[in-house]
């Protein structure tokens, strides 16, 4: 096997991209699901406020998704820039 410096850097970048996106997806996934579950509970309590609650849920999810997007950006940077 001919392993050179540049090859090792590339290999590290690829596996790092996989790790970054893989582990980065855990937190936002659980968090967004938690937010949506709480929104469902709130709608069960007050169905007439459903529109407002759905919007609030979406805003909250969008904010908690930002760490997932950071991971995506890092992964793409590792794949295409390094």
């Amino acid at each position: 096997m001919a392993i050179e410096g540049a090859d090792i850097v590339k290999a590290a970048a690829f596996i790092g991209a996989g790790l970054a996106m893989g582990f980065g997806a855990i937190g936002p996934g659980v968090g967004e699901g938690f937010a949506a579950g709480k929104a469902c509970e709130a709608i069960g309590k007050k169905p007439e406020e459903a529109g407002l609650l759905t919007r609030t849920m979406l805003v909250g999810q969008a904010v908690s998704e930002s760490t997932g997007i950071y991971s995506l950006v890092i992964a793409l940077l590792l794949l295409f820039v390094v």
Binding site: G22, A25, I26, G27, G29, V30, E32, G33, A36
Partner: peptide, 8 residues
């Protein structure tokens, strides 16, 4: 990447 969204 599939763990978190599944639990969520």
């Amino acid at each position: 990447g599939g763990i978190g969204p599944g639990i969520g």
